[in-house]
Design a protein around this nucleic acid. Structure first.
Lengths: 153, 153
DNA sequence: CATCCTGAGTCGCCTTTTCGAACTCAGGAG
DNA sequence: CTCCTGAGTTCGAAAAGGCGACTCAGGATG
Protein backbone atom coordinates (compact mmCIF):
# COMPACT_ATOMS: atom_id res chain seq x y z
CA UNK A 1 0.00 0.00 0.00
CA UNK A 2 2.96 2.27 0.58
CA UNK A 3 1.27 4.77 2.82
CA UNK A 4 -2.18 5.72 1.80
CA UNK A 5 -2.11 7.85 4.85
CA UNK A 6 0.15 10.47 3.29
CA UNK A 7 -2.61 12.92 3.81
CA UNK A 8 -3.61 12.09 7.38
CA UNK A 9 -1.43 9.91 9.58
CA UNK A 10 -3.74 10.86 12.41
CA UNK A 11 -6.69 8.92 11.13
CA UNK A 12 -6.91 5.50 12.69
CA UNK A 13 -8.92 4.20 9.79
CA UNK A 14 -6.16 5.16 7.40
CA UNK A 15 -3.57 3.51 9.61
CA UNK A 16 -5.61 0.33 9.78
CA UNK A 17 -5.99 0.31 6.04
CA UNK A 18 -2.30 0.74 5.61
CA UNK A 19 -1.94 -2.75 7.03
CA UNK A 20 -5.22 -4.29 5.93
CA UNK A 21 -6.20 -2.36 2.86
CA UNK A 22 -4.24 -4.04 0.12
CA UNK A 23 -5.94 -6.41 -2.19
CA UNK A 24 -6.36 -9.88 -0.66
CA UNK A 25 -5.20 -8.94 2.82
CA UNK A 26 -8.54 -9.14 4.59
CA UNK A 27 -9.35 -12.36 2.80
CA UNK A 28 -6.11 -13.83 4.08
CA UNK A 29 -7.17 -12.79 7.56
CA UNK A 30 -10.60 -14.31 6.99
CA UNK A 31 -8.94 -17.60 6.07
CA UNK A 32 -6.80 -17.40 9.18
CA UNK A 33 -10.02 -17.17 11.19
CA UNK A 34 -11.28 -20.20 9.36
CA UNK A 35 -8.32 -22.03 10.75
CA UNK A 36 -5.88 -22.04 7.87
CA UNK A 37 -2.29 -21.78 8.91
CA UNK A 38 -0.16 -23.00 6.04
CA UNK A 39 1.01 -21.23 2.93
CA UNK A 40 -0.60 -23.73 0.58
CA UNK A 41 -3.86 -23.71 2.50
CA UNK A 42 -4.16 -19.99 1.99
CA UNK A 43 -3.11 -20.27 -1.63
CA UNK A 44 -5.57 -23.04 -2.42
CA UNK A 45 -8.46 -21.47 -0.54
CA UNK A 46 -8.08 -18.07 -2.16
CA UNK A 47 -6.64 -18.73 -5.58
CA UNK A 48 -4.22 -15.90 -4.95
CA UNK A 49 -0.92 -15.64 -6.82
CA UNK A 50 1.76 -17.17 -4.65
CA UNK A 51 4.06 -14.20 -4.76
CA UNK A 52 1.28 -11.88 -3.67
CA UNK A 53 0.37 -14.25 -0.85
CA UNK A 54 4.00 -14.29 0.19
CA UNK A 55 4.05 -10.53 0.33
CA UNK A 56 0.74 -10.26 2.22
CA UNK A 57 1.78 -12.79 4.83
CA UNK A 58 4.99 -10.84 5.29
CA UNK A 59 3.23 -7.56 6.00
CA UNK A 60 0.68 -9.22 8.27
CA UNK A 61 3.56 -10.71 10.23
CA UNK A 62 5.43 -7.42 10.18
CA UNK A 63 2.47 -5.61 11.70
CA UNK A 64 1.74 -8.31 14.24
CA UNK A 65 -1.52 -9.64 12.87
CA UNK A 66 -0.08 -13.06 12.20
CA UNK A 67 2.79 -14.85 13.82
CA UNK A 68 5.09 -17.00 11.73
CA UNK A 69 6.01 -20.18 13.52
CA UNK A 70 7.93 -23.27 12.63
CA UNK A 71 6.12 -26.52 13.09
CA UNK A 72 6.86 -30.09 12.24
CA UNK A 73 4.29 -32.69 11.27
CA UNK A 74 5.49 -36.15 12.27
CA UNK A 75 7.78 -37.73 9.75
CA UNK A 76 8.03 -34.53 7.83
CA UNK A 77 10.47 -31.71 7.84
CA UNK A 78 10.01 -28.38 9.53
CA UNK A 79 7.66 -25.97 7.85
CA UNK A 80 6.15 -22.56 8.47
CA UNK A 81 2.71 -21.81 9.76
CA UNK A 82 0.92 -18.54 10.31
CA UNK A 83 -1.36 -18.06 13.26
CA UNK A 84 -3.41 -15.12 14.41
CA UNK A 85 -1.95 -13.07 17.22
CA UNK A 86 -4.05 -11.31 19.85
CA UNK A 87 -4.20 -8.25 17.61
CA UNK A 88 -5.24 -10.42 14.69
CA UNK A 89 -8.04 -11.98 16.68
CA UNK A 90 -9.32 -8.51 17.45
CA UNK A 91 -10.08 -8.07 13.77
CA UNK A 92 -13.27 -10.09 14.20
CA UNK A 93 -15.37 -6.94 14.37
CA UNK A 94 -13.94 -5.73 11.07
CA UNK A 95 -14.78 -9.00 9.36
CA UNK A 96 -18.15 -9.23 11.08
CA UNK A 97 -19.04 -5.70 9.96
CA UNK A 98 -18.10 -6.44 6.36
CA UNK A 99 -19.96 -9.72 6.57
CA UNK A 100 -23.10 -8.06 7.89
CA UNK A 101 -23.03 -5.36 5.23
CA UNK A 102 -22.54 -7.91 2.48
CA UNK A 103 -25.42 -9.97 3.81
CA UNK A 104 -27.65 -6.93 3.94
CA UNK A 105 -26.78 -5.14 0.73
CA UNK A 106 -25.23 -7.70 -1.54
CA UNK A 107 -27.30 -10.70 -0.57
CA UNK A 108 -27.27 -13.84 -2.69
CA UNK A 109 -29.60 -16.71 -3.25
CA UNK A 110 -27.45 -18.79 -0.93
CA UNK A 111 -28.09 -16.75 2.17
CA UNK A 112 -25.58 -15.66 4.78
CA UNK A 113 -22.14 -17.14 4.50
CA UNK A 114 -21.01 -16.73 8.05
CA UNK A 115 -23.02 -16.46 11.21
CA UNK A 116 -21.60 -15.15 14.45
CA UNK A 117 -22.93 -16.69 17.61
CA UNK A 118 -22.50 -16.93 21.34
CA UNK A 119 -19.98 -19.71 21.77
CA UNK A 120 -21.81 -21.01 24.82
CA UNK A 121 -25.44 -20.95 23.83
CA UNK A 122 -25.22 -20.78 20.05
CA UNK A 123 -27.49 -17.76 20.12
CA UNK A 124 -26.83 -15.54 17.09
CA UNK A 125 -25.13 -12.24 17.81
CA UNK A 126 -24.76 -9.01 15.91
CA UNK A 127 -22.46 -6.03 16.09
CA UNK A 128 -24.04 -3.08 17.85
CA UNK A 129 -22.98 0.20 19.33
CA UNK A 130 -23.13 0.06 23.10
CA UNK A 131 -22.58 2.85 25.61
CA UNK A 132 -20.29 2.41 28.57
CA UNK A 133 -23.33 1.97 30.73
CA UNK A 134 -24.53 -0.87 28.55
CA UNK A 135 -27.25 0.79 26.55
CA UNK A 136 -27.58 -0.57 23.04
CA UNK A 137 -28.07 2.06 20.35
CA UNK A 138 -29.24 2.03 16.79
CA UNK A 139 -26.93 3.31 14.07
CA UNK A 140 -28.82 6.54 13.70
CA UNK A 141 -28.40 7.32 17.38
CA UNK A 142 -24.63 7.37 17.02
CA UNK A 143 -22.47 10.24 15.83
CA UNK A 144 -18.79 10.29 14.95
CA UNK A 145 -16.82 13.30 15.97
CA UNK A 146 -13.16 14.27 15.87
CA UNK A 147 -11.16 12.98 18.80
CA UNK A 148 -8.00 14.30 20.48
CA UNK A 149 -5.90 13.82 17.36
CA UNK A 150 -7.79 16.59 15.62
CA UNK A 151 -8.06 18.93 18.57
CA UNK A 152 -4.63 19.22 20.18
CA UNK A 153 -1.67 20.75 18.40
CA UNK B 1 -10.75 -5.15 -8.11
CA UNK B 2 -12.41 -7.13 -10.88
CA UNK B 3 -13.91 -9.88 -8.77
CA UNK B 4 -11.75 -10.98 -5.95
CA UNK B 5 -14.52 -13.36 -5.23
CA UNK B 6 -13.64 -15.64 -8.13
CA UNK B 7 -13.02 -18.27 -5.57
CA UNK B 8 -16.08 -17.83 -3.36
CA UNK B 9 -19.03 -15.72 -4.43
CA UNK B 10 -20.81 -17.07 -1.39
CA UNK B 11 -18.72 -15.23 1.10
CA UNK B 12 -20.32 -11.97 2.14
CA UNK B 13 -16.99 -10.54 3.16
CA UNK B 14 -15.63 -11.13 -0.33
CA UNK B 15 -18.71 -9.52 -1.86
CA UNK B 16 -18.35 -6.49 0.41
CA UNK B 17 -14.71 -6.18 -0.51
CA UNK B 18 -15.56 -6.35 -4.16
CA UNK B 19 -17.23 -2.97 -3.69
CA UNK B 20 -15.15 -1.54 -0.86
CA UNK B 21 -11.81 -3.25 -1.17
CA UNK B 22 -10.07 -1.23 -3.81
CA UNK B 23 -7.44 1.24 -2.80
CA UNK B 24 -8.96 4.52 -1.55
CA UNK B 25 -12.57 3.34 -1.53
CA UNK B 26 -13.06 3.18 2.22
CA UNK B 27 -11.31 6.50 2.65
CA UNK B 28 -13.73 8.04 0.19
CA UNK B 29 -16.55 6.63 2.27
CA UNK B 30 -14.94 8.00 5.41
CA UNK B 31 -14.84 11.44 3.84
CA UNK B 32 -18.47 11.11 2.87
CA UNK B 33 -19.24 10.48 6.54
CA UNK B 34 -17.28 13.60 7.38
CA UNK B 35 -19.72 15.49 5.23
CA UNK B 36 -17.85 15.88 1.97
CA UNK B 37 -20.05 15.77 -1.07
CA UNK B 38 -18.18 17.36 -3.93
CA UNK B 39 -15.56 15.92 -6.24
CA UNK B 40 -12.98 18.53 -5.31
CA UNK B 41 -13.66 18.15 -1.62
CA UNK B 42 -12.83 14.46 -1.83
CA UNK B 43 -9.83 15.14 -4.01
CA UNK B 44 -8.42 17.81 -1.72
CA UNK B 45 -9.08 15.91 1.48
CA UNK B 46 -7.49 12.69 0.29
CA UNK B 47 -4.82 13.75 -2.16
CA UNK B 48 -6.08 11.01 -4.48
CA UNK B 49 -5.45 11.13 -8.21
CA UNK B 50 -8.49 12.66 -9.85
CA UNK B 51 -8.99 9.88 -12.35
CA UNK B 52 -8.90 7.28 -9.60
CA UNK B 53 -11.38 9.29 -7.57
CA UNK B 54 -13.61 9.49 -10.58
CA UNK B 55 -13.53 5.73 -10.92
CA UNK B 56 -14.12 5.10 -7.18
CA UNK B 57 -17.08 7.44 -7.06
CA UNK B 58 -18.51 5.66 -10.08
CA UNK B 59 -18.37 2.23 -8.47
CA UNK B 60 -19.71 3.53 -5.16
CA UNK B 61 -22.62 5.01 -7.06
CA UNK B 62 -23.03 1.85 -9.12
CA UNK B 63 -23.31 -0.26 -5.99
CA UNK B 64 -25.59 2.15 -4.21
CA UNK B 65 -23.27 3.38 -1.50
CA UNK B 66 -23.36 6.94 -2.77
CA UNK B 67 -25.98 8.76 -4.76
CA UNK B 68 -24.96 11.23 -7.41
CA UNK B 69 -27.14 14.29 -7.39
CA UNK B 70 -27.17 17.55 -9.25
CA UNK B 71 -27.18 20.66 -7.10
CA UNK B 72 -26.82 24.32 -7.78
CA UNK B 73 -25.17 26.81 -5.48
CA UNK B 74 -26.71 30.25 -5.98
CA UNK B 75 -25.23 32.17 -8.84
CA UNK B 76 -23.37 29.14 -10.00
CA UNK B 77 -24.06 26.50 -12.52
CA UNK B 78 -25.30 23.02 -11.81
CA UNK B 79 -22.75 20.64 -10.37
CA UNK B 80 -22.62 17.10 -9.04
CA UNK B 81 -22.59 16.04 -5.44
CA UNK B 82 -22.27 12.62 -3.89
CA UNK B 83 -24.23 11.75 -0.78
CA UNK B 84 -24.41 8.59 1.27
CA UNK B 85 -27.41 6.38 0.69
CA UNK B 86 -29.02 4.26 3.37
CA UNK B 87 -26.70 1.42 2.49
CA UNK B 88 -23.74 3.76 2.66
CA UNK B 89 -24.74 4.98 6.08
CA UNK B 90 -24.80 1.39 7.26
CA UNK B 91 -21.08 1.23 6.68
CA UNK B 92 -20.51 3.00 9.99
CA UNK B 93 -19.74 -0.28 11.73
CA UNK B 94 -17.07 -1.10 9.18
CA UNK B 95 -15.39 2.25 9.68
CA UNK B 96 -15.85 2.12 13.43
CA UNK B 97 -14.29 -1.35 13.58
CA UNK B 98 -11.28 -0.23 11.55
CA UNK B 99 -11.04 2.88 13.66
CA UNK B 100 -11.09 0.93 16.91
CA UNK B 101 -8.46 -1.51 15.69
CA UNK B 102 -6.20 1.29 14.52
CA UNK B 103 -6.59 3.04 17.87
CA UNK B 104 -5.76 -0.13 19.74
CA UNK B 105 -2.94 -1.57 17.67
CA UNK B 106 -1.51 1.28 15.67
CA UNK B 107 -1.89 4.04 18.20
CA UNK B 108 -0.11 7.34 17.72
CA UNK B 109 1.02 10.10 19.98
CA UNK B 110 -2.01 12.11 18.94
CA UNK B 111 -4.56 9.77 20.42
CA UNK B 112 -7.83 8.62 18.83
CA UNK B 113 -8.81 10.34 15.65
CA UNK B 114 -12.51 9.67 15.75
CA UNK B 115 -14.76 8.99 18.67
CA UNK B 116 -18.20 7.51 18.34
CA UNK B 117 -20.81 8.66 20.80
CA UNK B 118 -24.47 8.60 21.67
CA UNK B 119 -25.92 11.48 19.68
CA UNK B 120 -28.24 12.39 22.55
CA UNK B 121 -26.05 12.20 25.60
CA UNK B 122 -22.57 12.36 24.12
CA UNK B 123 -21.67 9.21 26.02
CA UNK B 124 -18.92 7.34 24.16
CA UNK B 125 -19.97 4.10 22.53
CA UNK B 126 -18.11 1.07 21.26
CA UNK B 127 -18.89 -1.75 18.89
CA UNK B 128 -19.79 -4.95 20.68
CA UNK B 129 -21.34 -8.28 19.92
CA UNK B 130 -24.83 -8.48 21.33
CA UNK B 131 -27.20 -11.44 21.41
CA UNK B 132 -30.79 -11.11 20.31
CA UNK B 133 -31.81 -11.04 23.93
CA UNK B 134 -29.51 -8.11 24.56
CA UNK B 135 -26.61 -9.76 26.29
CA UNK B 136 -23.27 -8.13 25.55
CA UNK B 137 -20.44 -10.55 24.85
CA UNK B 138 -16.70 -10.28 24.77
CA UNK B 139 -14.88 -11.15 21.57
CA UNK B 140 -13.68 -14.45 22.92
CA UNK B 141 -17.22 -15.52 23.70
CA UNK B 142 -18.17 -15.30 20.04
CA UNK B 143 -17.62 -17.91 17.35
CA UNK B 144 -18.04 -17.66 13.62
CA UNK B 145 -19.52 -20.61 11.85
CA UNK B 146 -20.61 -21.35 8.29
CA UNK B 147 -24.12 -20.20 7.53
CA UNK B 148 -26.70 -21.47 5.02
CA UNK B 149 -24.53 -20.59 2.04
CA UNK B 150 -22.07 -23.28 3.00
CA UNK B 151 -24.60 -25.89 4.05
CA UNK B 152 -27.22 -26.16 1.32
CA UNK B 153 -26.36 -27.41 -2.13
C1' DC C 1 -19.48 39.84 -27.31
C1' DA C 2 -14.85 38.08 -25.80
C1' DT C 3 -12.33 36.55 -22.04
C1' DC C 4 -11.61 34.66 -17.46
C1' DC C 5 -12.60 31.48 -13.85
C1' DT C 6 -14.14 27.16 -11.56
C1' DG C 7 -15.63 22.62 -10.74
C1' DA C 8 -15.65 18.25 -12.65
C1' DG C 9 -13.79 15.34 -15.10
C1' DT C 10 -10.84 12.88 -19.14
C1' DC C 11 -6.32 11.81 -21.58
C1' DG C 12 -1.66 10.21 -22.17
C1' DC C 13 2.42 8.57 -20.36
C1' DC C 14 5.03 6.38 -16.87
C1' DT C 15 5.55 3.55 -12.56
C1' DT C 16 3.88 0.06 -9.51
C1' DT C 17 1.12 -4.13 -8.58
C1' DT C 18 -0.84 -8.20 -9.79
C1' DC C 19 -1.11 -12.43 -12.46
C1' DG C 20 0.31 -17.02 -13.82
C1' DA C 21 3.39 -20.26 -14.83
C1' DA C 22 7.85 -22.03 -14.20
C1' DC C 23 11.70 -22.66 -11.34
C1' DT C 24 14.29 -23.39 -6.82
C1' DC C 25 15.31 -25.35 -2.42
C1' DA C 26 15.33 -28.42 1.62
C1' DG C 27 14.51 -32.51 3.57
C1' DG C 28 12.01 -37.15 4.11
C1' DA C 29 10.66 -41.39 1.55
C1' DG C 30 11.41 -45.16 -1.63
C1' DC D 1 20.33 -41.44 -5.91
C1' DT D 2 16.00 -40.04 -7.37
C1' DC D 3 11.25 -38.65 -6.35
C1' DC D 4 7.95 -35.93 -3.91
C1' DT D 5 6.07 -32.05 -1.23
C1' DG D 6 5.52 -27.68 0.92
C1' DA D 7 7.12 -23.15 0.72
C1' DG D 8 8.53 -19.99 -1.49
C1' DT D 9 11.11 -16.90 -5.55
C1' DT D 10 11.67 -15.37 -10.37
C1' DC D 11 10.19 -13.58 -14.72
C1' DG D 12 7.51 -11.58 -18.47
C1' DA D 13 2.98 -9.79 -19.52
C1' DA D 14 -1.25 -7.33 -18.10
C1' DA D 15 -3.80 -4.32 -15.13
C1' DA D 16 -4.10 -0.56 -11.91
C1' DG D 17 -2.53 3.67 -9.93
C1' DG D 18 -0.13 8.39 -10.06
C1' DC D 19 0.53 12.82 -12.20
C1' DG D 20 0.27 16.67 -14.96
C1' DA D 21 -1.99 18.65 -18.82
C1' DC D 22 -6.13 19.25 -21.23
C1' DT D 23 -11.24 19.68 -22.00
C1' DC D 24 -15.83 21.29 -21.22
C1' DA D 25 -19.81 23.91 -19.52
C1' DG D 26 -21.61 27.81 -17.84
C1' DG D 27 -21.56 32.03 -14.81
C1' DA D 28 -19.02 36.36 -14.01
C1' DT D 29 -16.34 40.28 -15.78
C1' DG D 30 -15.21 43.97 -18.86
Amino acid sequence: MTSVLGKDPRCSIARSLEVLGEKWTLLVVREAFRGRTRFSEFADALGIARDVLSSRLATLVEFGVLERRAYRAEGSRERAEYVLTASGRELVPVLAALNAWGDAYRATEWGPATVYADAQTGEPVSLRFVTESGRILDLDEVTAHPGPAFRNT
